[in-house]
């Protein structure tokens, strides 16, 4: 299937989707999606419900096959990557047997991966060594989530997929969670997380992929996404500004002149800044982007969810 396997380094993408389409009957859940994630990237997969996030994640995990197109993980088919413990996932709910103890669950899962981490070490690292002999069914939601993480990290996966990873965590929990994830990414682990918390995507991801109706509508850093949707706003102090000349610059949407101050809305404020600084006496330049929230609404046509709204 794949010709160039096992080329270590940055040449093989961690995740690659090429022309991937997935339909369910007449519903197109994922529509001709192209996405390449480099090793060590932390990517937020952002979009309203029903945008195709889950379907895409399922295809990367080999849980469902694309109707058309190709999915590969580290140059392998998703199933081959799973069989080698290269990709794992943490889901929000389910996936645990209530009648097993925490230790049994970890031991059982570890036994399926050659070279998996030692179960007791894994329990220790996940901070649930004290719960080892407790039945999973008797553990709290947070404890079960820690267990899921411990399980996902057992094979030392190169790619980790997370579904709404910090739902239900408190602020401190979130912070330490993301610190751990960033550490892993620095070691080369690729992390892709589905979320609808904009703030989290903006703060912790290297890259945000925004999907809507099965298509990628934006792909870039948080700052790029914000600029893409709404442009930036540039303020400067300039006496006697030529509004007409400014409006004539490429990408300028509007120019306001209030006394000595100039406010320019533009998709590309860099051009405006260059012009102002080189051609005029403008000073005190200030460029601000509008919020990611605005970008989200503009690009997906839906308001983003508030963290507090989530019942779990």
């Amino acid at each position: 299937m794949t010709t160039s396997t096992a080329t270590p380094g940055s040449t093989t993408p961690a995740i690659r989707l090429a022309g991937v389409t997935r339909t369910f009957g007449s519903v197109v859940a994922v529509d001709d999606l192209d996405l390449t994630v480099r090793p060590g990237e932390v990517v937020a997969f952002l979009g309203p419900n029903g945008a195709g996030k889950t379907t895409t994640v399922d295809m990367i995990l080999g849980l469902s096959a694309p109707t058309r197109g190709e999915v590969s993980v580290l140059g392998l088919s998703p199933r081959d990557a799973i069989a080698r413990g290269l990709v794992s996932a943490v889901m929000q709910s389910g996936g645990l047997l209530k009648d097993l103890t925490v230790r049994e669950t970890v031991r059982l899962t570890a036994s399926l991966f050659p070279g998996a981490a030692d179960p007791d070490d894994a329990l220790e690292r996940a901070g649930i060594a004290g719960l080892a002999d407790r039945k999973v069914g008797k553990c709290s939601g947070g404890e079960q989530q820690r267990l899921r993480f411990a399980l996902a990290l057992l094979p030392d996966p190169a790619v980790l997929l997370l579904d709404e990873p910090t739902t239900g965590m408190d602020v401190e929990g979130r912070r330490s969670f993301w610190a751990a994830i960033r550490d892993d990414a620095a070691r080369g682990r690729t992390v892709m997380f589905a979320t609808h918390y904009l703030e989290e995507a903006d703060q912790y991801a290297d890259r945000i992929v925004l999907v809507r109706q099965g298509r990628i509508v934006a792909d870039g850093s948080g700052a790029e996404i914000k600029a893409l949707a709404s442009g930036r706003t540039l303020r400067a102090t300039l006496a006697g500004a030529d509004a007409h000349a400014l409006a004539g610059l490429p990408g300028v949407e509007s120019v306001e002149i209030r006394g000595d101050s100039v406010v320019v809305h533009a998709a590309n404020t860099d051009t405006v800044a260059r012009h102002l600084l080189t051609e005029t006496a403008a000073r005190d330049l200030e460029i601000t982007s509008r919020g990611l929230e605005d970008a989200f609404v503009t690009l997906t046509g839906t308001p983003a969810a508030e963290p507090q709204e989530d019942p779990r």
Partner: peptide, 13 residues
């Protein structure tokens, strides 16, 4: 129904 078989699909089993 507990999602365990799905979890197992994410292992080499």
């Amino acid at each position: 129904s507990l999602g365990w078989s799905r979890q197992l699909r994410l292992t080499p089993l």
